[in-house]
Design a protein around this nucleic acid. Structure first.
Lengths: 361, 361
DNA sequence: GTGAAAGCGCTAACAA
DNA sequence: TTGTTAGCGCTTTCAC
């Protein structure tokens, strides 16, 4: 690897001059000198060390990205969009870390980022506690958090970007209701996060506005420390079992996300229930996998690309007036993609419910 | 961020002394001094800058990871294993890049790695041309390539780690044959890579040993520049169409990987064919998704964790005697996971074939 | 217009 | 046992 000195020598100029052309300060430079330097750069295949440069400037073209698990297709999807955009628009590379939703791992990642001179980071965490994030901000980082909101009333220096989870769940639920479902369930994993609770609120809101609040409930499955990939199968299995042995079981289920919906459909099938003829399910996310599942999964499409870009933008630009609060962007999620996992509730179940209602009268 | 100087001042010692305790050169040090330094480090929340350190040592605890698309669940899976292991065992973080199987993007990633002082990189590429890899090696990098083999007879400085693709495909094909299938197809995407051609060889080998070579063929779908995520749906659709309009269609299909199998099953369903009663399909990879597909996908499980670890090990240790050739590790893939996507061929189709045979007699 | 010099935060001889 | 010194590759005043 040749250095700036090598180039300087080759071009018979000083290192400063080379540095100047490197940084575009080329206005007041003699044409001939510039040419010589450029020629030397090419000849020696010289590439400046971002490393040494950073030691001086304090800036490194790196972006941190923290995900629970990159094996989760949703995070993989986001990560790809983030990396592609950060690279194309800002020439930044991305440093990635799996946290398994573990606070220690998150904190340790932040430490390392700092040590590497990385000052911009996007975190997908949903850990209840945000203190390590605000701490990072105090240490000079620009942090963008996905799928959380700032605690209302609290000033926050961390940027938040999220889909409109409330609306997404409401759309999904309304879709079920429009198909005639009256017994609804919201399927989620154990452990509450802001985004999950927003979705649950949206679910209940849709149920309430249709006068179905009493027939709507939340069911939980799976381990609480889940990070959303392989374990989703077990969670779906758990949930299917819960549903099957339910005396008055729901006919329409909205799943907290596509992976859960997929796991759920798989569990349902194992127990002999058919989707959509026995039970309808709708997901949220809009993973490409929902298009090739069987049956095709009806789902609420999240604007992943737009959110990813927005996160990168925020991470790159930072809060303009340094004393102003960070951003809180909520993205519309109005796009329901209809496929085959939703149908009218089965007649049989309807009669079961009718009977029940009669009994209770 | 406090520096080593701050710590030195606080502990009333020199920077070198602090550096010594930082690097464990603490044997010949007075207890009391050590204690003072450690106390100062804690007090100032001091974290050494890997950056400055690297400028000196030429080593940075970073590992490059190049994938076609991190949105592809298989690469997400590998990436997670790589990152986790690199972090836990070697304290290295990983710098990730999507290449979309584009040579320019790959080369540019290598440039940036070099500029960042990263000297170890794992690449999942399958691009025919490996020249940019050997070039990187010449520039002092340790590169580990996944799912390729060294060109036989050629000395190579790049390490290769791959599953036994030939064997994997053979196992998958034999499984179909054991279930009575006589008309076989291998479903892949357009564009040949070493791993794909190995799989095809294994497929034909199994067919031949059962005397079925003439009834075995390869079908291709999808765009040639595919990088294996969202587009897989279209590829599956293409393929299903091809299969359906086939006069003498196969009853058993082995797919080049799980995603292709999933897409294929989806396309098949659209055309009204049932898996497995009309057509059996088996995949390769062993993604967690294969467990929750419908029907559950029978697939050959690849030893992903082991391969990921081996790749990290190779990347970290490098070729011990610097004049010796790089490693070429092929991992056994003998584990067939049986689920529901394989059954005996349909009687109807068998009779069709019988008729055909009669006609040709 | 171009170069000399200082310094970013750290490490590693070598002195003391 | 600890401190002094030089220098990693680059940027950036400030002279010339």
């Amino acid at each position: 690897m040749s250095t700036i000195q090598d180039v300087a020598r080759h071009a018979a100029v000083s290192a400063s001059t080379v540095s100047n052309v490197l940084n575009g300060r080329t206005e007041k430079m003699r044409q001939e000198t510039l040419a010589r330097v450029e020629e030397a750069i090419v000849a020696l295949k010289y590439r400046p060390s971002t490393l040494a440069r950073q030691l001086k400037t304090g800036q490194t073209p790196l972006l941190g990205l923290l995900v629970p698990s990159i094996a989760n297709p949703m995070y993989g999807y986001i990560a790809r969009e983030v990396e592609t955009f950060a690279q194309e628009k800002y020439g930044h590379r991305v440093l990635i870390g799996n946290t398994y939703r573990d606070k220690e791992k998150e904190a340790s990642f932040f430490e390392d980022l700092l040590a590497h001179g990385v000052r911009r980071v996007i975190v997908i965490s949903s850990l209840a506690d945000e203190s390590h994030l605000t701490q990072a901000v105090q240490r000079g980082m620009i942090v963008v958090s996905y799928d959380r909101r700032a605690t209302p009333g609290e000033h926050s220096k961390v940027n938040h970007i999220a889909p409109d989870n409330f609306e997404a769940a409401r759309i999904a639920t309304r879709h079920l209701i429009a198909h005639g479902h009256t017994h609804l369930a919201f399927a989620t994993v154990a452990g509450m996060t802001v985004s999950r609770s927003d979705k649950i609120d949206g679910f209940y809101a849709a149920a309430s506005e249709a006068g179905l609040r009493e027939h709507a409930r939340v069911i939980e499955g799976g381990p609480s420390n889940e990070y959303g990939d392989s374990v989703i199968g077990e969670a779906g299995h758990d949930l299917a079992l819960q549903i099957v042995k339910d005396a008055c079981r729901p006919t329409g289920i909205v799943a907290v996300n596509d992976l859960m919906a997929l796991g759920l459909m798989s569990g349902l099938r194992e127990t002999g229930l058919n989707v959509p003829s026995d039970i309808s399910v709708v997901g949220m996310d809009g993973l490409f996998l929902s298009a090739i599942s069987n049956p095709g999964l009806t789902t609420v499409q999240l604007p992943v690309t737009e959110m990813a870009r927005a996160m990168v933008e925020r991470a790159m630009t930072g809060p303009c007036p340094p004393d102003v609060d960070a951003d809180d962007l909520v993205f519309n999620t109005t796009l329901l993609v209809e496929r085959e996992s939703v149908a009218a509730p089965p007649a049989q179940t309807a009669s079961t419910h009718a009977r029940k209602r009669k009994t209770s009268t």
